[in-house]
């Protein structure tokens, strides 16, 4: 019989290989010369030709630029709304409609995308029919739809973070006569800053990545990057998509490593300040 330590290690190695080998194979084949993506053309590889093809493809670059703008606006709006929702749920005590709000913020986490996409599109069509807005579909409608599902993720992250802190600091500030808004900006906000940063990154990624909801609410004129990729890969493999994937993996890996390091530093500084404050308060 396998020893328990061996079993755990095997489970991890097998599982992590399963997660990473496909990504690795995409990166390897992005340097392959052959059009037949999966046959390694040893004579002429590695090559950067798919990367240069990608960077001269105006259609893909336009779509990427649209996706970046949508993701940035989505992430920022989601962070504002999600932080407010998380704060209300974690700090406002009981109020009428609290259970409904809690339900509304967790439902989009598991809602199948086709349902969200369809319902958002039907709303926009009905609105346009009734009041003439939104006039056509594109940037605005995609952003609204993305914010609606992304804000749930931010809410959960902020709410869990707030639940991990008691509210004694906030209480103390209120007792000392600070206004609620002041308390929020000078005490609560710095406490939940790491959650807000990861919430922003999460919302950005989810928006950047979404294809199904975008397809419903995009209208004929706007194509986000995932929509372009999806219509390309539906027809089979194409080597420039491999190059695109490799670039995205590199960027993401870099961002995740940097933000992890940065958030660790923020956290350490906050703990230090809290200790000093408590020490000074006696």
């Amino acid at each position: 019989m396998m020893s328990r330590g061996r079993f755990r290690k095997t489970a991890l190695v097998v599982g992590l290989s399963f997660l990473y080998l496909p990504i690795l194979s995409m990166i390897v084949f992005s340097f392959n010369n052959s059009r037949l993506v999966t046959v390694w053309d040893a004579a002429h590889s590695p090559t950067l030709k798919w990367y240069s093809a990608l960077l001269s493809n105006g259609h893909i670059l336009d779509a990427a630029w649209l996706s970046i703008r949508i993701a940035a606006v989505t992430a920022t709006l989601s962070v504002v709304l999600g932080t407010v929702a998380g704060l209300v749920l974690a700090r406002f005590g009981p109020f009428r409609g609290r259970a409904l709000l809690a339900g509304l913020t967790t439902a989009p986490l598991v809602m199948p995308e086709v349902i969200t996409g369809l319902s958002m599109l039907l709303l926009f069509v009905a609105l346009e029919h009734a009041i003439g807005w939104p006039d056509g579909r594109g940037f605005v409608t995609i952003t609204i739809a993305h914010v609606t599902f992304c804000l749930s993720y931010v809410t959960v992250v902020v709410q869990s973070r707030l639940a991990g802190f008691d509210d004694s600091l906030e209480e103390a500030a209120l007792d000392l006569g600070a206004r609620p808004a002041r308390v929020f900006f000078s005490i609560t906000l710095p406490l939940i800053l790491p959650a807000i940063i990861s919430g922003w990154l999460l919302a950005f990624t989810l928006s950047w990545d979404d294809v199904v909801i975008s397809q419903f609410v995009a209208g004929p004129s706007a194509s986000t990057l995932p929509m372009v990729i999806f219509s390309k890969v539906r027809l089979g493999v194409s080597p420039d998509v491999n190059a695109l994937a490799s670039i995205m993996v590199a960027v993401v890996a870099l961002c995740v490593v940097c933000s992890t390091l940065w958030m660790r530093r923020l956290e350490r500084r906050r703990q230090l300040e809290e200790q000093m404050a408590r020490a000074a308060g006696g």
């Binding site: 990504i23 194979s25 995409m26 294809v211 990729i229 999806f230 493999v237 998509v241 994937a245 995205m248």
Partner: peptide
């Protein structure tokens, strides 16, 4: 990393 691209892989 992109869900779509990981499925495509």
């Amino acid at each position: 990393t992109s869900f779509l691209l990981r499925v495509y892989a």
